[in-house]
C-alpha cells in the first residue's frame, strides 16, 4: 500500500550506525508536499491522494493546471503524484491544501521503497546493458569479439530471432524502484530523510519515497 512523499535526491554520504559500522547513505529532501486533490470512491471510483511538490512560476504553468491549483488553494507545484489508497489502512483523512511532512509518514529505523528514474546511459552494448561476458579471449590472435553478444539463436529452424532477445540498445532512463532501504536519520527542520544505500537517478532529480 503506497503511502509516500515526493522528494528530491540531494546526494550521498556515509554515517556510522549504532554498531559503529559505516553505512553508505543517500540524503533526500522529502516534502513538504501539499495535498492537491483527494479522490474518493463516490467521485472517482477509487481512493487516492494527489500531492504536489516543488514550486514553479505561474507563467510556466499550463492554464488547465493553474485552474487545478487554484481549486486546491495552493501555489503551482512542479510535480504532481497520486498515491493510491493512501491513508486507508491507518484511517487518516487528508484534506485538500493540507501539508504533509516527513515526520507525518516516516520514522527512523523503518524500511522504505524509493522510486526514481535511472540515469540515461545512451546506446550501450550487451556487456554493459545485460552484463554479458563477451566472447572468447582478449589475446592469442583474437581481435574483434571481446564485447560481442555471441550467438543470438539457432539456424534454419527457427530461421528467426526470438522476440525479447537481449541486444544492444538504449540503456537507463527507466523508472526504477529500490526496495527496503532503511531510514537512518530524519531531520525534520530541513525536511531531510537519510536512507541507507543508493537510489536511482542523478542528484536533484525527483523521486518518490514509499512505505
Amino acid at each position: 500500500m503506497p503511502i509516500g512523499l515526493i522528494g528530491k535526491k540531494i546526494g550521498m554520504t556515509s554515517l556510522f550506525n549504532a554498531d559503529g559500522r559505516s553505512v553508505a547513505c543517500t540524503v533526500i529532501q522529502a516534502g513538504p508536499c501539499v495535498v492537491t486533490q483527494v479522490k474518493t470512491e463516490d467521485t472517482d471510483g477509487y481512493r487516492a491522494v494527489q500531492m504536489g511538490f516543488g514550486e514553479r512560476k505561474e507563467k510556466n504553468t499550463p492554464k488547465p493546471l493553474q485552474g487545478h491549483f487554484k481549486k486546491s488553494g495552493t501555489t503551482p507545484k512542479r510535480k504532481l503524484v497520486e498515491f493510491r489508497n493512501m491513508g486507508v489502512e491507518t484511517e487518516t483523512t487528508y484534506e485538500v491544501g493540507q501539508e504533509v511532512n516527513v515526520t507525518d509518514l516516516f520514522e527512523e529505523g523503518q524500511f522504505v521503497d524509493v522510486v526514481g528514474t535511472s540515469k540515461g546511459k545512451g546506446f550501450q552494448g550487451v556487456v554493459k546493458r545485460y552484463n554479458f561476458a563477451g566472447v572468447g579471449q582478449a589475446t592469442h590472435g583474437q581481435h574483434n569479439r571481446l564485447r560481442a553478444p555471441g550467438s543470438i539463436g539457432a539456424s534454419s529452424y527457427p530461421s528467426r530471432v526470438f522476440k525479447g532477445m537481449r541486444m544492444a540498445g538504449r540503456m537507463g532512463g527507466n523508472r526504477v524502484k529500490v526496495k527496503n532501504l532503511r531510514v537512518e536519520k530524519i531531520m525534520p527542520e530541513a525536511n531531510l530523510i537519510v536512507v541507507s544505500g543508493a537510489i536511482p537517478g542523478a542528484n536533484n532529480s525527483t523521486i518518490l519515497i514509499q512505505r
Binding site: G11, C25, V27, M187
Partner: peptide
C-alpha cells in the same frame, strides 16, 4: 563546496 543539506547531515 559540498551541498548544504549534506553538510547538515554530516554536522
Amino acid at each position: 563546496m559540498r551541498n548544504q543539506f549534506i553538510q547538515m547531515v554530516e554536522a
